[in-house]
Design a protein around this nucleic acid. Sequence first.
DNA 1: CAAAGCTCCTGACCGC
DNA 2: TGCGGTCAGGAGCTTT
Length: 280
Amino acid sequence: MPELPEVETVKNGLAPIVEGRRLFRVIQRRDKLRIPLPENFAERLQGRRVERIGRRAKYLLFHLDGPDILICHLGMSGRMTVTAAGDRGAPDIFGKHDHIILETDAHDLVTYNDPRRFGLMTLCPADGLDQHRLFCHMGPEPLGNEFNPGYLATCAENRRSPIKNFLLDQRVVAGLGNIYVCEALFEAGISPKKNAGDLTGDEAEKLVPVIRDVLGRAIRAGGSSLKDYAQIDGTLGYFQHQFRVYGRAGESCPTSGCGGEIIRIIQGGRSTFYCPACQD
DNA sequence: CAAAGCTCCTGACCGC
DNA sequence: TGCGGTCAGGAGCTTT
């Protein structure tokens, strides 16, 4: 599933295709994704120039020369595919789950495909992004300066939920998903079951750089993946990571000398993978 | 206000 | 081979 590093990689892959380009044509093949698409969605995008593509949390932002910003979320199963102008068949053939197609004035296609439709696209006034309902309660970026041990410790005070759930709360920090929270807690040696309110200052000091490091490594891996492989099938942002605990229930703990076994538990209805021996 | 529960959706997987 | 049942999962919204 696309987590923050994948979204960053998608952003970097789309930038050279769309930045500075006008949207020559926009094809909308259904009324709604996770939420309804806005009125006149395609018409409002068509003819606009993409000034810049950005990211906030796991949202892609297409900054346009018109009144709107295009907001995209890839949800669970969303993908962006680039089809170069020279590789297009005639006529265009679209897949069952190809929902939105952006054609640039260079006639490259950017296709949004999402089988489960947990993703969304919407528009928001260019000067009102921070006031938009999706963003107005959002916490700081995990890679930004505002997310630091002091902030995290203050935020965690008196909180009664497990640290795992706490870190997934987008109001606390925006863009962390299930995989990277599991990985970061493992690398920081903190139990996912620990109450957020019981987080010590030392643990906050450890956790913040670990989160940055885990995300940073994945982004760098995505960058190299993009460079090496993105041309093959045009799909952006998916690459193989070596996760230490995620998806590894039953395997032995990768910490040398630990000897524990990674287990899977459910927290807040979601899988958590961790080593009960070295995360306490 | 915080925390828990609900919801959207389909592919994958399982047992018969 | 096919079919019904079950499950996962991001994150905003609703309820407690």
